[in-house]
């Protein structure tokens, strides 16, 4: 079962990239068969049947919010860069996250980097250290709600 799933996935990716001609189907089958044998024998991975559903959720719920935040971030950068005296009030704050998995934390840190005025520096257990251009909140809880709040809910629904 594992062999078949891996083979079909690899062949589909190959054909999507190379195009559907007879030559490509033959060559793609050979390459995918070799890769399947190597992957299944020498690496240890499990096939998670929930993954496609997670991927669809990720694409249709998370990506639009993310792109909107990215555009806002760029307008913010543009405003700061083009103003003659750059408005700054920088600081490094600590943000607490509830996400458990590594992939979830990576996605959260990447999203924090690409949202307005924040840059994630380091991840340590349940905390993310974030450099912000403009420190608004007084306490860690307030900063967490400001910075990670909008993404935390969506990502928690997808990855956990």
């Amino acid at each position: 079962m594992k062999y078949v799933t891996t083979f079909v996935t690899l062949l589909l990716i190959y054909l999507l990239l190379a195009g559907f001609t007879v030559n490509e189907v033959i060559l793609g089958s050979i390459v995918s068969a070799i890769l399947t044998i190597i992957l299944v024998k020498y690496t240890d991975f499990r096939i998670n049947w929930k993954f496609p559903i997670k991927l669809l959720k990720f694409l249709f719920i998370y990506i639009p919010v993310f792109i909107w935040k990215l555009i806002l971030a760029n307008l913010d950068v543009a405003r700061r860069v083009l103003s003659p005296k750059i408005p700054l009030n920088p600081g490094i704050v600590k943000v607490k996250t509830e996400l458990k998995g590594d992939l979830g934390k990576l996605t959260l840190a990447n999203s924090i980097t690409l949202t307005p005025g924040t840059l994630s520096i380091d991840v340590e257990d349940q905390y993310i250290f974030v450099h912000t251009v403009d420190v608004k909140g007084k306490s860690d809880v307030e900063n967490t709600a400001n910075i990670a709040g909008p993404f935390e809910k969506i990502l928690g629904g997808i990855f956990d």
Partner: peptide, 15 residues
């Protein structure tokens, strides 16, 4: 234009 390294990283990456 940004005055210190962290702000330079921010502007560069996002834009």
């Amino acid at each position: 234009r940004m005055p210190d390294t962290f702000n330079r990283i921010q502007a560069g990456t996002k834009a």
